[in-house]
Structures are given as structure tokens and as C-alpha cells.
Measured scan of single mutants.
Amino acid sequence: MEQGTVKWFNAEKGFGFIERENGDDVFVHFSAIQGDGFKSLDEGQAVTFDVEEGQRGPQAANVQKA
């Protein structure tokens, strides 16, 4: 798993971006967030995640709040 920081996340649209430790950004969809209840992330929040190849390039999977 990688570690990163939430760059931004739009809860209304259900997606955002995580900044990886290497400085690259990776797309995150709310469906990739682990846990119960409303799935959202806060700007600046530390997270761990896997990276999978999506239809439009790399995207975060198995996102967990650190």
C-alpha cells in the first residue's frame, strides 16, 4: 500500500485526487473508500491506498484513512 495526502475531494460529485509520496496525483472515486457510512475525504487528510489501472489511467483503490 502507498501513503498519500488528499489534495482535494468533492463530496457532491464523489471524486477527487490524492497526492502520492512521489508527488504525482492519483484519481480517487468515493466507491474506493473503505468503511461504513458516508464516504468522503477531507483536504490534507492522510490516507493509505493501492493503485490500479482504470479506464482513464491510474486510480486509487482500497482507500483507508490513516
Rank of each mutant, 00 (worst) to 15 (best):
Phe9Val: 04
Glu2Ala: 10
Ala60Ile: 02
Ala61Asn: 08
Glu19Leu: 15
Asn62Ala: 04
Thr5Met: 10
Gly4Thr: 00
Gln55Pro: 15
Val26Pro: 00
Glu53Trp: 14
Asp25Ile: 12
Gly37Ala: 06
Asp50Leu: 11
Gly35Ile: 09
Gln64Lys: 12
Asn62Thr: 04
Asn10Asp: 12
Ala60Trp: 01
Lys7Asp: 02
Gly23Arg: 10
Ala46Pro: 11
Val51Tyr: 06
Lys65Ile: 14
Ile33Tyr: 03
Ala66Asn: 12
Lys7Met: 04
Asn10Cys: 09
Gly54Arg: 09
Gln45Val: 09
Asp42Ile: 14
Trp8Gln: 03
Asp50Asn: 13
Gly4Met: 00
Asp24Val: 14
Pro58Ile: 10
Ala61Ile: 13
Gln59Asn: 05
Trp8Asn: 03
Val28Tyr: 04
Glu52Met: 13
Asp25Met: 13
Gly57Asp: 02
Glu19Arg: 15
Ala66Lys: 15
Ser31Glu: 05
Phe30His: 10
Gly23Gln: 11
Met1Gln: 14
Glu43Thr: 14
Val47Cys: 05
Ala32His: 06
Gly14Tyr: 02
Ala32Cys: 06
Arg56Leu: 11
Met1Val: 14
Asp50Gly: 08
Glu53His: 12
Asp42Phe: 15
Ile33Asp: 01
Gln64Leu: 10
Gln45Tyr: 05
Val28Leu: 08
Gly57His: 05
Val47Glu: 00
Ala60Phe: 01
Val26Tyr: 04
Asn22Cys: 13
Phe30Met: 07
His29Asn: 03
Arg20Gln: 07
Ile33Lys: 01
Val47Lys: 00
Glu43Val: 15
Lys39Cys: 06
Gln3Ser: 14
Glu53Pro: 11
Gly4Arg: 01
Val28Gly: 01
Gln55Ile: 15
Thr48Val: 12
Phe49Asp: 01
Arg20Gly: 05
Lys13Gln: 08
Gly4Ala: 03
Asn62Tyr: 05
Ala46Val: 11
Ala32Thr: 05
Phe9Gly: 01
Phe27Met: 03
Lys13His: 11
Phe9Arg: 02
Ala46His: 15
Val26Met: 07
Ile18His: 00
Lys65Tyr: 09
Ser31Trp: 06
Thr48Ser: 10
Arg20Thr: 08
Pro58Ser: 08
Gly54Lys: 08
Thr5Ala: 07
Ser40Val: 10
Pro58Val: 09
Gly14Phe: 02
Gly16Tyr: 01
Gly44His: 09
Gly57Pro: 05
Val6Cys: 07
Asn10Arg: 08
Asp24Ala: 15
Gly16Lys: 00
Gly14Lys: 04
Gly44Phe: 05
Asn22Arg: 12
Val47Phe: 01
Trp8His: 04
Glu52Lys: 11
Gly35Asp: 09
Met1Lys: 15
Gln59Ile: 09
Lys39Leu: 11
Lys65Arg: 11
Val6His: 01
Glu52Thr: 13
Asp36Cys: 10
Ile33Phe: 06
Gly4Trp: 02
Lys13Asp: 04
Gly14Ile: 02
Gly37Ser: 07
Lys39Asn: 06
Val6Pro: 00
Val26Ser: 01
Val6Trp: 02
Phe38Met: 07
Phe9Glu: 01
Val47Pro: 01
Phe9His: 02
Phe30Asn: 04
Glu21Phe: 12
Asp42Trp: 14
His29Arg: 04
Gln34Met: 13
Asn22Thr: 12
Gln3Cys: 11
Glu21Leu: 15
Ala46Cys: 10
Ile33Gln: 02
Glu19Asp: 08
Ala32Glu: 05
Lys7Ser: 05
Gly54Glu: 04
Phe38Arg: 09
Asp50Ser: 14
Glu12Asn: 13
Gly14Leu: 03
Val26Lys: 01
Asp25Trp: 13
Asn10Pro: 03
Gln3Ile: 12
Glu12Arg: 14
Asp24Met: 12
Phe38Gln: 08
Gly35Gln: 10
Gln59Ala: 07
Gly37Pro: 06
Ser31Ile: 05
Asn22Lys: 13
Glu21Ile: 14
Val47Asp: 00
Gln64Glu: 07
Ala66Gln: 13
Gly37Arg: 05
Gly4Pro: 01
Asp50Tyr: 14
Phe49Glu: 00
Val47Leu: 04
Glu43Ser: 14
Ala61Trp: 07
Phe17Trp: 08
Arg56Glu: 06
Val51Ile: 14
Thr5Tyr: 14
Phe17Gly: 02
Val47Ser: 00
Ile33Cys: 03
Gln45Arg: 05
Ala66Tyr: 12
Phe27His: 02
Ala11Gly: 10
Gln34Lys: 13
Arg20Leu: 06
Arg56Thr: 07
Glu43Tyr: 15
Asp50Val: 12
Ala60Ser: 04
Thr5Glu: 06
Asp50Gln: 12
Ile18Glu: 01
Phe17Gln: 04
Val47Trp: 00
Gly23His: 10
Phe9Asn: 01
Thr48Phe: 14
Gly14Thr: 03
Ala60Asp: 00
Phe49Asn: 00
Gln45Asp: 13
Val63Phe: 00
Gly57Phe: 05
Val26Gly: 00
Gly4Gln: 01
Lys13Ser: 07
Gln34Ile: 14
Lys65Thr: 10
Gln55Trp: 14
Pro58Thr: 08
Lys65Glu: 07
Val63Arg: 00
Asp36Thr: 13
Ser40Gly: 08
Ser31Tyr: 04
Ala66Cys: 10
Arg20Lys: 09
Lys65Ser: 09
Lys39Tyr: 06
Phe49Trp: 02
Val6Gly: 01
Asp42His: 15
Val63Gly: 00
Ser31Gln: 07
Thr48Arg: 11
Ile18Lys: 00
Phe15Lys: 02
Glu12Pro: 08
Gly14Asn: 03
Val47Thr: 03
Gln3Gly: 09
Phe38Gly: 06
Gly57Ala: 05
Leu41Thr: 03
Phe30Pro: 02
Lys65Gly: 08
Arg20Val: 09
Lys7Phe: 03
Ala32Ser: 10
Gly57Lys: 05
Phe38Asp: 08
Glu2Pro: 05
Phe17Met: 09
Ser31His: 08
Val6Asp: 01
Gln34Ser: 12
Ala66Arg: 14
Trp8Cys: 06
Met1Tyr: 11
Glu2Tyr: 15
Phe9Tyr: 10
Phe15Leu: 05
Ala11Trp: 10
Asp24Lys: 15
Asn62Ile: 04
Gly44Glu: 04
Ser40Asp: 06
Val26Gln: 01
Asn10His: 09
Gly4Ile: 01
Gly16Asp: 00
Glu53Asn: 13
Gln55Cys: 09
Phe9Ala: 02
Gly37Leu: 06
Ala60His: 01
Ile33His: 02
Ala61Met: 12
Met1Gly: 13
Ala32Gln: 08
Val26Arg: 02
Asn22Ser: 12
Arg20Tyr: 07
Asp36Phe: 10
Asn10Ser: 13
Glu43Arg: 15
Lys13Ala: 08
Gly37Glu: 06
Val51Phe: 07
Gly16Cys: 01
Val28Phe: 14
Gly14Arg: 04
Phe27Ser: 02
Val28Pro: 01
Glu12Met: 14
Arg56Asn: 12
Val47Ile: 06
Phe15Ala: 02
Gln55Ser: 13
Arg56Pro: 07
Gly57Leu: 04
Gln59His: 10
Ala32Arg: 05
Asp36Ser: 13
Ala66Pro: 07
Lys39Ser: 06
His29Tyr: 05
Gly44Tyr: 05
Gln59Tyr: 14
Phe38Ala: 07
Asp36Leu: 11
Gln55Tyr: 15
Asn62Gln: 05
Ala61Ser: 09
